[in-house]
């Protein structure tokens, strides 16, 4: 437990110290929120709920910011490898499992902080929180997304030689995961051929879970969302731990 805490502490310290990274990763979600939110609010109404598009969009953008931050946090292990720091942890009398869990929880923590910042900023453009319990539910789903995708990033980083593959992963894996999820549009209005893809996307359950927490309604049962996401987090954590065990400094 001490070791996991030590590695977690380092991740969080590094994150809090790099102001440019905090602001940099806030940029894209914030612009999505502002441009899409204000741009489409007047012409789009969400069937069934009667709420405006901006209110619908916020949970999706929160999930987006958690997703991007956590994948990046996982892939950062490559930096540790290139700058030699990974050797320092690998040669210590600690298990790979502890290192991996510490990194995962550290990445998930930073991702949740990013998500909460987006959430707080959206209060200024008209979001209202239904209840404190709802906020906590949303936070739990953010944490699950964070854990899943940091572990996912570590799994990918364990198989990568350097940062060159990073853009590839971002454009062809992470962006489709975001785009196919119900972050930008309601699942019920999808064409029938696209719906199965969306339902196979783990992020969909994260977005719906956050949406349930923030607005009290969702198109997928929140319990199902939680179940699917917990299973996905466990699977990626296992895959990450397995691949990281084989990573050489």
């Amino acid at each position: 437990m001490d070791i996991i805490y030590t590695i977690w502490l380092r991740s969080v310290k590094r994150y809090l110290r790099s102001k440019s990274r905090i602001i940099g990763t806030l940029g894209m979600p914030l612009f999505f929120l502002l441009f899409l939110g204000f741009g489409l609010n007047s012409i789009v109404s969400i069937p069934g709920t009667g709420e405006g598009y901006t209110a619908f969009l916020v949970p999706g953008i929160v999930a987006m910011s958690v997703l991007f931050t956590s994948v990046f946090a996982g892939i950062q292990i490559i930096w540790d490898k290139q700058f030699g720091f990974l050797k320092e942890t690998l040669v210590a009398p600690v298990s790979r499992m502890e290192i991996m869990l510490g990194q995962t929880l550290g990445g998930a923590t930073t991702a949740c902080i990013q998500g909460v910042i987006i959430l707080v900023l959206s209060l200024f453009i008209g979001l209202t929180l239904s209840s404190a319990a709802g906020f906590l539910i949303a936070l739990c789903f953010m944490a699950l997304i964070g854990i899943s995708f940091t572990a996912f990033g570590i799994a990918i980083a364990s198989r990568m030689e350097d940062m060159h593959g990073f853009q590839l992963v971002m454009n062809f894996v992470v962006f489709p995961i975001f785009g196919l999820s119900g972050a930008l549009f309601p699942i019920s209005s999808l064409p029938s051929w696209l719906a199965p893809l969306t339902m196979a996307d783990p992020l969909t359950y994260g977005v719906e879970g956050i949406r349930y927490g923030l607005s009290g309604t969702s198109q997928i049962d929140p319990l199902l969302c939680g179940g699917v996401l917990i299973a996905f987090a466990a699977a990626t954590a296992l895959a990450g731990a397995f691949l990281f065990r084989k990573m050489s400094a």
Binding site: R10, S18, F83, G84, F85
Partner: peptide, 12 residues
């Protein structure tokens, strides 16, 4: 062990 290549965390 002191490695040939640096293994410090520069951000700390």
């Amino acid at each position: 062990i002191v490695f040939q290549d640096q293994s410090l965390d520069e951000e700390l």
